[in-house]
């Protein structure tokens, strides 16, 4: 059994040097992704409060709430946490104000899949759950490698499936480069049609969508039937072939282990497109 010594000095994702004197017993999470990671490595029973958006796992949703993007400093301070954890979405002024209250603020930086694995390791170290974190990292790394082999040995390697992500079927908002879903589509054997469009959440023109004619459409909101009703979108190959799927945005928009585990599911959706021909 590997033990992590406390006190511990670490450099976090915001390049701050933190001293963790003892194993944290009262943790507050400031993002839904961090909450999921903490529970995934077995530190969940020491989380005392989360944000209103933290709905997974179900135990997390029952915890005290400190706000959403705007946190309530009074509620945070009264809970006397010995560790506050956030990701790179935390506003810098908020981080400073929490530190000014004498709190220890750890920021992880899960900007992509590799970043998620690094964050798991950092969280494991700081919470004293390194063993479980490393087990999970091992499991996820093997899963990624297995899926990569599967894609490389399939027709997807030569010709990735063209994928359109729609956050909103009415307004044609999509997910651009730098988003989690963009990386996940690429790793699963697809090409994101909005991957080269500037901006994280670009609004696509109808012309662009019709010209590119995606083979698969992934919705994170609404219903696949919404596209059938649309006089233009129903002409798309993906709609005609019934390859419109509704994804859970909580899984595909958050930096978590569930996101990584969701990659093979996408590969399952992409493979039949090539095999059918």
């Amino acid at each position: 059994m590997q033990t992590v010594p406390f006190p511990l000095v670490i450099v976090d994702g915001a390049k701050n040097v933190l001293e963790i004197k003892e194993q944290p017993q009262r943790i507050i999470s400031l993002s839904p992704g961090v909450t999921e990671l903490l529970f995934a490595i077995g530190a969940g029973d020491r989380v005392v409060a989360v944000t209103t958006w933290c709905n997974y796992p179900p135990e997390a949703a029952k915890l005290a709430k400190v706000g959403d993007m705007n946190i309530n400093y009074e509620v945070v301070a009264e809970l006397s946490p010995d560790l506050v954890v956030a990701d790179n979405s935390l506003q810098q002024t908020t981080a400073e104000r929490l530190v000014n209250l004498g709190l220890t603020v750890l920021q992880v930086k899960p900007v992509n899949i590799v970043g998620i694995l690094d964050s798991l390791e950092l969280l494991g170290r700081v919470t004293g759950c390194l063993d479980q974190a490393q087990d999970l990292i091992g499991e996820l790394t093997r899963l990624l490698a297995a899926n990569r082999r599967r894609v490389e040995n399939s027709p997807l390697a030569k010709e990735p499936v063209s994928v359109l992500v729609l956050l909103d079927p009415e307004e044609l908002y999509s997910a651009g480069s730098g988003t989690y879903i963009d990386e996940v589509i690429t790793r699963a054997g697809g090409t994101n049609l909005a991957g080269g469009v500037p901006g994280a959440w670009p609004k696509l023109s109808l012309e662009y969508v019709l010209a590119k004619d995606p083979e698969v459409i992934l919705l994170t909101y609404g219903e696949p039937t919404d596209l059938v009703k649309n006089p233009y979108l129903r002409r798309l190959s993906a709609v005609k072939a019934g390859r419109v799927y509704l994804l859970d945005p909580d899984i595909y928009n958050r930096p978590t282990d569930r996101l990584i585990k969701g990659i093979p599911l996408l590969t399952e959706l992409f493979l039949p497109v090539r095999e059918a021909r």
Binding site: Y73, E74, A77, E78, L79, S80, N100, L101, G102
Partner: peptide, 16 residues
């Protein structure tokens, strides 16, 4: 030191 007096002291002295 308010931090030694607990969460409520931080709320009163550090915030409110």
């Amino acid at each position: 030191d308010p931090a030694q007096l607990g969460g409520q002291a931080v709320v009163i002295v550090g915030l409110r």
